[in-house]
């Protein structure tokens, strides 16, 4: 290490630490503790219904984590267990490194949450709703309450309607007020269940920008949504649940690439193209107008797409376009959870 030792004595404390910081980080930085970690988390309701079944979820620090699943797949039950609202039947949940629900008093002041839509006191103004939620937090200083409430209102664009009774709010305004409650304090973790529900497109954009901004500041965001577009746009990681079980989790890029794109060839000579592709192991060939699509073979060394194209050309197939279709998260999601529209019972 040839760090400049010429730094003045003044900098011995702060300066050297920051200098060496990067080195230690790259050399032997232990994996930072996940913000949320569950082991075998299970919830069986009194009726015997298994809502969440052996969930092992890991939400890395600093991620924007998309939590996906069809209706009734156990997402909200999971969130409620993480927030200490319901007791797990078995298994453990750790949030910000501490066990939930036991350490709720220490953990929850550092967590902002929007769970299953906003809930407000209709007879109180928007501002007084926030005052009430802020007063419920024993770590919130009453002297700075008014300032905190004002800045939270400002952040979600409700400063102008703060004095109105909450029952007069539109769905989108209620949603914003719910978000403001989650943003009353600087948080380590934000849990947002369907945050863009009921918002107009402009509001959705604002919320997405807000989530990105918070993530850039280092807040981990745990986002549940049905809007796969949204997850794809803002999330770095995602997990997919169905029927109470975790199907997969990982980075959004990995998730999308785990479902392989279909090969698509545009050509006037579709019949010849189908024949050649079939010879090279491409399955499930579908012809639509001048487009041929198919599944690439899953054999161990996947075929080089260039070879396939060369083979087509050698067989006098005139190729206008050639490539794999981009896989959206939606495709990955449907591939994992199935196409069925029925809600899991």
């Amino acid at each position: 290490m040839t760090e400049p030792d010429a730094v003045t004595d003044m900098a011995t404390e702060a300066g050297t630490v920051t200098d060496t910081d990067t080195d230690t980080m790259t050399e032997s930085e232990p994996e930072p503790e996940p913000v949320i970690e569950t082991r075998g988390l299970t919830k069986r309701y009194r009726g015997g219904q298994l809502a969440v079944d052996g969930l092992d979820l890991v939400v890395p620090r600093g991620s924007v984590f998309g939590f996906l699943g069809p209706n009734g797949s156990g997402k909200t039950t999971t969130i409620r267990m993480l927030m200490g609202l319901i007791e797990p039947t078995s298994g453990q949940a750790r949030v910000l490194g501490e066990p939930m629900p036991r350490a709720g008093g220490r953990v929850l002041p550092r967590v902002g949450a929007l769970i299953e839509g906003p809930a407000l006191y209709g007879f109180l103004s928007g501002r007084d709703n926030l005052v009430r939620y802020d007063a419920a937090d024993p770590t919130a200083d009453p002297r700075t309450r008014a300032a905190r409430v004002a800045s939270a209102l400002d952040r979600v664009g409700l400063a102008g309607a703060a004095g109105k009774k909450a029952r007069a709010y539109s769905l989108g305004m209620k949603q914003r007020l719910g978000l403001a409650a989650a943003l009353l304090q600087p948080r380590d973790l934000l849990v947002l269940d369907e945050p863009t529900n009921g918002l107009d497109p402009q509001g959705m954009r604002e919320i997405r920008a807000l989530v990105r901004g918070l993530a850039a500041e280092g807040t981990t965001v745990f986002l549940s949504s049905h809007l796969l577009d949204e997850i794809e746009q803002v999330c770095s990681h995602a997990a997919v649940m169905a029927r109470g079980r975790l199907l997969t989790q990982g980075t959004v890029a990995d998730l999308a690439s785990s479902t392989r794109g279909r090969l698509a060839v545009t050509t006037p000579d579709t019949a010849d193209a189908v024949r050649v592709l079939k010879e090279h192991g491409v399955n499930d060939l579908v012809v639509a107008d001048d487009r041929v699509t198919g599944e690439l073979p899953t054999a161990a060394p996947p075929p080089d797409l260039a070879d396939l194209n060369a083979a087509l050309v050698r067989a006098d197939v005139r190729v206008r376009a050639f490539g794999t279709e981009r896989v959206s998260l939606e495709d990955a999601f449907v591939a994992l959870t199935g196409e069925g529209f029925d809600v899991a019972g």
Binding site: R80, M83, G84, L85, G104, G105, L108, P109, V111, A113, I115, E116, G117, A119, L120, Y121, Y133, D134, A136, D137, P138, G178, A181
Partner: peptide
């Protein structure tokens, strides 16, 4: 009205 869950995650503390 659902406000109970927000009071509890604030966290108000159930006993308090």
């Amino acid at each position: 009205s659902g406000t109970l869950r927000y009071l509890l995650v604030a966290p108000a503390g159930r006993t308090r």
